[in-house]
């Protein structure tokens, strides 16, 4: 098991400030459907036992019912566990110097991405929709210096609080890594300048 005091690529004096997962309600919707699916065969069995009990006394029917029923329930519990695994192993860890995004994709694919806090430029929280507003969960988008893709926390609880935490920690980390932060910002501005030059001058330079 992964221990929090032994994070992948741990830095000196690194302390965990927050661990975030998708909101539990994202799991609940699937569990609700599965409860209905589980109730269906039990209801069918009860219906048969009250209406046509001869089916349940027949050796052949019973064998087929037991084999089919156990295969069904084993499949359901495996599906539930797989889904929980996918939910539980997706995790965002915020420390005082970086953000770790650990994502499980299916059974065999796993992505771990890391972002240094001093590179964070912009954090956006978004609560969109009825359920999200009601239960206060949503997305947190983190824009970094020099990177086009955004780092995203999906369906985390209280995204506004999370974004404030990240901004505060990023501010503190920038003070500690002032030189590296300036370099990162310079790189970004240089990149941006290059893009502007390419976009505006290149068409005129073509023969």
């Amino acid at each position: 098991m992964m221990k929090l005091d032994n994070l992948p690529g741990a830095l000196p004096n690194e302390k965990i400030q927050g661990i975030f997962r998708r909101h539990w309600i994202t799991l609940f919707s699937l569990f609700a459907i599965l409860i209905v699916i589980i109730i269906l065969p039990i209801a069918s069995y009860l219906f048969l036992s009250f209406t046509d009990s001869s089916v349940l006394q027949n050796n052949t029917s019973l064998v087929l019912l037991i084999l089919g029923g156990s295969a069904f329930f084993l499949f359901v519990i495996l599906f539930l566990y797989q889904h929980f695994l996918d939910h539980w192993l997706d995790i965002w860890i915020v420390t005082n110097s970086r953000i770790l995004n650990i994502e499980q994709k299916g059974l065999f694919a796993r992505t771990i991405s890391e972002l240094r806090l001093y590179r964070v430029q912009d954090v956006t929280s978004e609560v969109n929709g009825f359920m999200r507003s009601l239960l206060n969960f949503g997305m947190v988008y983190i824009q970094t210096a020099g990177e086009k893709e955004r780092f995203t926390f999906e369906d985390v609880h209280n995204p506004n609080k999370v974004s404030k935490l990240i901004l505060t920690l990023a501010e503190q980390d920038r003070k500690e890594h002032l030189e590296e932060a300036i370099e990162a910002i310079d790189e970004t501005s240089l990149d941006n300048k290059q893009h502007i030059v390419d976009a505006h001058l290149a068409p005129h330079l073509e023969p």
């Binding site: 098991m1 221990k3 797989q82 539980w88 499980q104 059974l107």
Partner: peptide, 28 residues
């Protein structure tokens, strides 16, 4: 019964992989 046993073998194999993943990568 043989078909069920084949299904059971597949179930046990996927379960073993899932449990291994959970114990390896799940938070302590």
């Amino acid at each position: 019964l043989i078909v069920w046993l084949v299904f059971l073998a597949v179930f046990l194999f996927i379960s073993a992989l899932s449990i291994m993943q959970m114990l390896r990568f799940g938070l302590h």
